[in-house]
Write a protein that binds this DNA or RNA. Structure first.
Length: 482
RNA sequence: CGGGGCGUGGCUCAGCCUGGUAGAGCACUCGGUUCGGGACCGAGGGGUCGGAGGUUCAAAUCCUCUCGCCCCGACCA
C-alpha cells in the first residue's frame, strides 16, 4: 500500500498551484533534476540527462538528414557584436549576464554570456561567406545559453539551459523562408513522433516574435493543466542580421548581395513539456522513444531466487537487449518488488516486466504498461518481438491520448464573453479572429492573461476581431502560457 | 521588481503566539525475518534551527537587517 506521506498530489487538478506542486515533485522524485546553490540554475541528474541525450540523438539525425552539420561557437560575446542589431540588443539587454573582469583585470570591452548566438554566428558567417557557391551554409550547435530570468522553474525556465541552435544563411529570400518552415516541420514531426506531444504550428504575432527576426514561427503544446508551452521556434531573419554583420556574397549575377538568414532552436524545456503532457498521479510517463529504460525487469525475490529466478531474468534481459530494447534488470536485493514497481512508475518506464517462480514454471513473464497499467502474461517464446510491438503501441497510445486531450481543450470562439469564461474556467487553446492590432492583443492579455500563441497557417476568413470588433485579418490561437 | 507565504537532520514537517535540556515520520547504518503493489522487528548515526546583528541571566522562539525558496502579477525557450 502506498503510504500517504509518499503519495503525490492525489489528483492532477487544473489549478496551477497543485499542478505546479505536482510538477516539482515529479522532477525531484523521478530524479530528473535538482536545485543547486547557483540561483536559478538546476543540476540535470543522470536520469534526466539520459532523456536529453535521446532527444539529441534523434534530433541530430533529423538535422543531418536535412543537410545540416554541427559546430561550436564561443560562450562569450563582445559587447560591440551584440550591439550591432538594434532590435536584437533591445530584446535581450534585460536578460544578459555580463563579464566585466578577467582575473584581476577590468576588461576593456565587456563580454556577454550568450543568451543566443546570432551575433557570433553572424560575425563568423561574414568571414566564411564570399560567393553564392558558399551558400547555403547550414550549421547547428549544441550548447548552453544564459538568460537572467526573474522567475525560474526546472526545465521550463532556468537561468542557464541546454539547447540546440541552428543558424543558416541562404542565397534567396525564398530559400531562407523555406528553410525556416522546413525546420519548424522537423520540430513538429519530432515532437509528435518521438515525444508523443501534439503541437500546433503557426506564426508568432509581431509582439511575440524573436528580437531581430522578420518572422517567427513556433510549435505550441498543451500541458495537463490547460496552459500552453512554446516547445520550439524557427525564425526567418530576413536580411536583418546579414546587414548588421555584413554577411555578403557575390551572386550569380556578379552583384554583391546580403544573405538571407534563419535560426531555430529547441531546448531542455522539451523535457518539462514531456512531464506535463504525459505525467499522472504516480509520476512521470515516458514515451518509449525517449525512455532511458524502455523495460525494467523486476525479479520476484522468493526463496533461493538468486539461483531459481535471477538466471531467467538475465536471459530475458539479454534477449530483449539483443533486439535493441533499452532494458534494465533491477536485481537490487534491498528493495521489495512493490517498492520497485512504485519507483519505476515514478520514473516513467513504459513497460515493467515481472518474472517470478510461477512465471518460470509456465514459460512466461508478466508485462505491465505504464500508461494504462494493463497487466498481461506473455510467452517467453517470441518475447522481443512482442515487447517491441507493445512499446510501439504505448508510443502510439500516448500520442492519441495527448491529442484527444488537446482537442478536447481547444475551442473556436466567436463571442468575447465566451472567450473570457473559457480563460476563467477550463483553460486551453481558444481559436478566434483577431484584428492584428498589438494594443488589442495587449488588452486581451491584461484582461484574461491569455496571449496569442501563434497564428494558424489555415485561416477561416471574414468576421470581426474577437475583442475590438474591427475587421479581423487573421485567426489566432490564444492560451495562458508558461 | 511589487503583493503574499515559508526557511528547523537527506526529505516532509511539529515546536515559535506565551523565551528555559532540539522533536516526529520517512530516508540512512548494522543484525535478523521477508519479498507477485512502496515489508516487519531490534539496535544505531546524523541538526551551532538559512545568515548577521540586537534584546535577555537565557533565543529555534522576541526585534532589525540580509540571503534563499514557493505562490500570484509585469519579462521570457
Amino acid at each position: 500500500m502506498a503510504r500517504p506521506e509518499d503519495a503525490l498530489v492525489t489528483e492532477i487538478t487544473p489549478q496551477s498551484e497543485d499542478f505546479s506542486r505536482w510538477y516539482l515533485d515529479v522532477v525531484r522524485r523521478a530524479e530528473l533534476a535538482d536545485y543547486t546553490p547557483v540561483k536559478g540554475c538546476m543540476a540535470i541528474r543522470p536520469y534526466g540527462y539520459a532523456i536529453w541525450e535521446l532527444i539529441q540523438q534523434d534530433l541530430d539525425r533529423r538535422f543531418k538528414a536535412t543537410g545540416h552539420v554541427n559546430a561550436y561557437f564561443p560562450l562569450f560575446i563582445p559587447e560591440s557584436l551584440i550591439m550591432r542589431e538594434a532590435e536584437h540588443v533591445e530584446g535581450f539587454a534585460p536578460q544578459v549576464a555580463w563579464v566585466t573582469k578577467g582575473g584581476a583585470e577590468e576588461l576593456e570591452e565587456k563580454l556577454v554570456v550568450r543568451p543566443t548566438s546570432e551575433a557570433i554566428f553572424g560575425t563568423m558567417y561574414s568571414r566564411w561567406i564570399q560567393s553564392w557557391r558558399d551558400l547555403p551554409l547550414l550549421i547547428n550547435q549544441w550548447a548552453n545559453v544564459v538568460r537572467w530570468e526573474k522567475v525560474t522553474r526546472p526545465f521550463l525556465r532556468t537561468t542557464e539551459f541546454l539547447w540546440q541552435e541552428g543558424h543558416t544563411a541562404h542565397e534567396t529570400e525564398a530559400e531562407a523562408q523555406e528553410e525556416t518552415l522546413r525546420m519548424l516541420g522537423v520540430y513538429k514531426a519530432f515532437a509528435e513522433e518521438v515525444l508523443a506531444m501534439p503541437v500546433l504550428d503557426g506564426q508568432k504575432s509581431e509582439s511575440e516574435k524573436f528580437a531581430g527576426a522578420a518572422r517567427t514561427y513556433s510549435i505550441e503544446a498543451l500541458m495537463g493543466d490547460g496552459r500552453a508551452l512554446q516547445a520550439g521556434t524557427s525564425h526567418f531573419l530576413g536580411q536583418n542580421f546579414a546587414k548588421a554583420f555584413e554577411i555578403r556574397f557575390q551572386g550569380r549575377d556578379k552583384t554583391l548581395q546580403y544573405a538571407w538568414t534563419t535560426s531555430w532552436g529547441v531546448s531542455t524545456r522539451l523535457i518539462g513539456g514531456l512531464i506535463m503532457t504525459h505525467g499522472d498521479d504516480s509520476g512521470l510517463i515516458l514515451p518509449p522513444r525517449v525512455a532511458p529504460y524502455q523495460v525494467v525487469i523486476v525479479p520476484i525475490q522468493r526463496g533461493n531466487w538468486q539461483e531459481t529466478v535471477l538466471p531467467h531474468a538475465q536471459q530475458v534481459r539479454d534477449a530483449l537487449q539483443a533486439a535493441g530494447i533499452r532494458v534494465f534488470l533491477d536485481a537490487r536485493e534491498e528493495y521489495t518488488p512493490g517498492w520497485k514497481f512504485a519507483e519505476w512508475e515514478m520514473r516513467g518506464v513504459p513497460v515493467r516486466l515481472e518474472i517470478g517462480p510461477k512465471d518460470i514454471e509456465k514459460g512466461q513473464v508478466v508485462l505491465v504498461r505504464r500508461d494504462t497499467r494493463a497487466k498481461a502474461a506473455a510467452s517467453r517464446d517470441g518475447l522481443p518481438a512482442h515487447v517491441t510491438a507493445l512499446l510501439d503501441e504505448v508510443q502510439r497510445a500516448l500520442l492519441d491520448r495527448a491529442r484527444a486531450f488537446r482537442d478536447d481543450h481547444t475551442s473556436r470562439v466567436e463571442r468575447w464573453e465566451e472567450f473570457v469564461s473559457i480563460m476563467e474556467g477550463r483553460p486551453g487553446f481558444v481559436v478566434a479572429r483577431w484584428c492584428g492590432n498589438a494594443e488589442c492583443e495587449a488588452t486581451i492579455k491584461a484582461e484574461t492573461q491569455a496571449t496569442i500563441r501563434n497564428l494558424p497557417f489555415e485561416q477561416v476568413p471574414g468576421g470581426p476581431c474577437i475583442r475590438c470588433d474591427r475587421p479581423a485579418i487573421t485567426d489566432a490561437r490564444f492560451a495562458k502560457a508558461y
